[in-house]
Amino acid sequence: MKIVLIAVPGAGKSTTLKYVKEMLPDVTIVNYGDYMLEVARRNYGITNRDEMRKKLPVDEYRKVQEIAAEEIAKLPGDVIIDTHASIKVQGGFYPGLPDRIITKLRPDAIVLMEFNPLDILERRAKDVGLRDRENETPDDIELHQMANRYYAFAAANAGECSVYILDFRKKPQTRPFEHAEEAARFIVNLILRDREARKRL
Score class of each variant (00 low, 15 high):
Leu5Tyr: 07
Ala7Ile: 05
Val8Gly: 05
Gly10Lys: 07
Ala11Phe: 04
Gly12Ser: 06
Thr15His: 08
Thr16Phe: 04
Thr16Pro: 03
Lys18His: 15
Tyr19Cys: 12
Val20His: 02
Val20Thr: 09
Lys21Val: 10
Glu22His: 10
Met23Tyr: 12
Pro25Asn: 08
Pro25Ala: 08
Val27Asp: 01
Val30Asp: 01
Tyr32Glu: 03
Gly33Thr: 11
Asp34Glu: 13
Asp34Cys: 09
Tyr35Arg: 15
Tyr35Val: 12
Met36Phe: 03
Met36Gly: 07
Glu38Trp: 06
Val39His: 02
Ala40Asn: 05
Arg41Asn: 13
Arg42Ala: 06
Asn43Phe: 10
Gly45Ala: 06
Asn48Gln: 07
Arg49Val: 10
Arg49Lys: 15
Asp50Ile: 14
Asp50Gly: 15
Asp50Lys: 15
Arg53Ser: 08
Lys54Ile: 08
Lys54Pro: 00
Leu56Met: 07
Pro57Thr: 04
Pro57His: 03
Val58Glu: 14
Val58His: 13
Glu60Lys: 15
Tyr61Glu: 05
Tyr61Cys: 06
Arg62Asn: 13
Arg62Trp: 06
Ile67His: 03
Glu70Trp: 00
Glu70His: 05
Ile72Met: 02
Ala73His: 03
Lys74Thr: 04
Leu75Thr: 12
Leu75His: 01
Leu75Asp: 00
Leu75Trp: 02
Pro76Ser: 09
Asp78Thr: 05
Asp78Ile: 06
Ile80Arg: 04
Ile80Ser: 00
Thr83Met: 01
Thr83Asp: 00
Thr83Lys: 06
His84Met: 03
Ser86Phe: 02
Ile87Val: 15
Lys88Leu: 14
Lys88Phe: 09
Gly91Lys: 04
Gly92Asp: 00
Gly92Phe: 06
Phe93Trp: 07
Phe93Asp: 02
Gly96Trp: 01
Gly96Ala: 03
Leu97Gly: 05
Leu97Trp: 01
Ile101Gly: 02
Ile102Glu: 00
Ile102Leu: 07
Thr103Glu: 07
Leu105Phe: 03
Leu105Asp: 00
Arg106Gln: 13
Arg106Ile: 08
Pro107Asn: 02
Pro107Gly: 04
Pro107Phe: 07
Pro107Gln: 00
Asp108Gly: 14
Ala109Tyr: 10
Val111Asp: 01
Val111Ala: 00
Leu112Ser: 03
Leu112Lys: 03
Glu114Tyr: 03
Asn116Pro: 05
Pro117Met: 03
Pro117Leu: 01
Asp119Cys: 10
Leu121Lys: 04
Glu122Gly: 12
Arg123Asp: 06
Arg124Met: 12
Arg124Asn: 05
Lys126Ser: 11
Gly129Cys: 06
Arg133Thr: 08
Glu134Val: 09
Asn135Gly: 14
Pro138Tyr: 07
Pro138Arg: 13
Asp139Val: 11
Asp140Lys: 08
Leu143Asp: 12
His144Ala: 10
Gln145Met: 10
Gln145Cys: 01
Met146Asp: 08
Met146Lys: 14
Met146Val: 15
Met146Ala: 15
Asn148Val: 11
Tyr151Glu: 13
Ala152Ser: 13
